[in-house]
C-alpha cells in the first residue's frame, strides 16, 4: 500500500506573536493512505491544517506535495485558492461552512467552478448560450448527482444546504470537497457532533473515498473510534510538537500519548515524566 509520499511536512513552525502554535513539526503522508492527526485541544492540529490548505503561511518550514503524476508543489508558497485549484488540496471545516442559501446541488456545482469556468470560455460562450458550456454543465450535474447518491442525499438535492440535518451537512461538505477532484482531502473533525450510527456511516464513506478514488485523506479527529478504525497512519501532536507517529495500534500503546490524553497515576509520574523529557528536550518536570 504505502507507495509514495504525497505530502511532506518539514520543520513546520507557526508563531502568532509570542505563541508558538506549531513547533518544528515533521511528518509525511503516504499516497492513498488515511492519515490521522490527533492530539488534545490546542495542540495545533487546525493550524497545521490551515498551513497545508494555504489559509496560513508558516513562519518557517517547507510543505511539499507530490502528485501521483510526479508534479511537485510547495504549498507554503502558493496563494490560498491556488492550493485548492492547482495543487488539488481540498478541505472541510470544523464548523461547517456550506453555502447555506444554495441547494445541495448548487453547492456541488460551485465546487466544480474552475472546470465549468473554462468550459464557459470565462463566461463568454456561456452568456451567448453555446452548447460547449451546456455539455460541461450536464457532466458537472451528473458528477454532483453521483456524489449526492453516495452520501445518501439524492432526494434532498434541491433543498437549501442550511435546511439539511447536521450529519447530512457534514457529508455534503465532504462531497463538495470531493467534487474539486482533490489529491489530498483534509477533513477537520468530520465526526464531530455525529451519533454512533452516523459516525459508522462516515467511516464507510471515507474508506470508500480512499479505495475508489485513490484520494489521500488527512484528518483531524477527536473521536477515537473513527481514528482507530479507519486511519492507516496516525500522527499525535501536543503543544505544537509531535509526540508520536505510527500505526493506530502503535500510537495507542505509546505511553506519551496516553499521558497526553489521560494524564497518569501518581505512582507513574516519575517514569512518564522521564519519558517525556527524553522525547521533548527542554520540557520541565512539574
Amino acid at each position: 500500500m504505502a507507495s509514495s509520499e504525497v505530502l511532506r511536512v518539514e520543520h513546520l513552525t507557526v508563531r502568532f506573536g509570542g505563541l508558538t502554535a506549531v513547533d518544528d513539526l515533521n511528518f509525511s503522508a503516504m499516497h492513498g493512505d488515511i492519515t490521522g492527526l490527533i492530539g488534545p485541544n490546542g495542540a495545533g492540529k487546525t493550524t497545521v491544517f490551515n498551513c497545508i490548505t494555504g489559509f496560513y503561511k508558516p513562519t518557517t518550514g517547507l510543505l511539499s506535495m507530490t502528485h501521483p503524476s510526479g508534479r511537485q508543489f510547495y504549498l507554503d508558497r502558493m496563494a490560498d485558492f491556488k492550493v485548492a485549484s492547482t495543487a488539488h488540496v481540498a478541505r472541510t471545516f470544523q464548523n461547517i461552512r456550506l453555502f447555506s442559501g444554495m441547494t445541495a446541488l448548487e453547492n456541488l456545482l460551485v465546487a466544480q467552478h474552475n472546470v465549468l469556468m473554462r468550459a464557459s470560455g470565462m463566461s463568454v460562450w456561456g452568456v451567448l448560450g453555446f452548447p460547449v458550456y451546456k455539455h460541461a454543465e450536464k457532466r458537472a450535474a451528473e458528477k454532483a448527482a453521483e456524489w449526492l447518491d453516495k452520501i445518501g442525499l439524492y432526494d434532498r438535492a434541491d433543498d437549501p444546504a442550511g435546511e439539511l440535518p447536521y450529519g447530512a451537512q457534514r457529508r455534503l461538505e465532504i462531497a463538495r470537497a470531493m467534487c474539486t477532484d482533490p489529491v489530498i482531502l483534509c477533513l477537520d473533525e468530520p465526526a464531530a457532533g455525529l451519533n454512533p450510527k452516523e459516525s459508522a456511516e462516515l467511516n464507510t464513506l471515507l474508506r470508500g473515498i480512499r479505495d475508489e478514488t485513490k484520494t489521500s485523506i488527512l484528518l483531524i479527529e477527536h473521536d477515537m473510534s473513527v481514528v482507530m478504525q479507519i486511519c492507516d497512519h496516525v500522527v499525535v501532536l501536543e503543544y505544537g510538537q509531535k509526540i508520536s507517529d505510527g500505526t493506530p495500534a502503535e500510537v495507542k500503546a505509546d505511553p506519551r500519548v496516553i499521558a497526553a490524553y489521560l494524564g497518569v497515576d501518581d505512582s507513574e509520574i516519575e517514569s512518564v515524566a522521564s519519558l517525556i523529557e527524553e522525547a521533548i528536550p527542554g520540557v520541565k518536570k512539574s
Binding site: F55, A84, S85, M102, G126
Partner: peptide
C-alpha cells in the same frame, strides 16, 4: 446560471469556503 454567477452567490454565502474550493 453560469459558474461566475454561482461564484458570486457563493461569495455572498461564505468567502472562506469559496477559497477552499479554489475560487479566485
Amino acid at each position: 446560471r453560469l459558474p461566475v454567477g454561482r461564484a458570486w452567490e457563493a461569495l455572498r454565502e461564505d468567502e472562506i469556503a469559496c477559497r477552499s474550493l479554489g475560487l479566485n
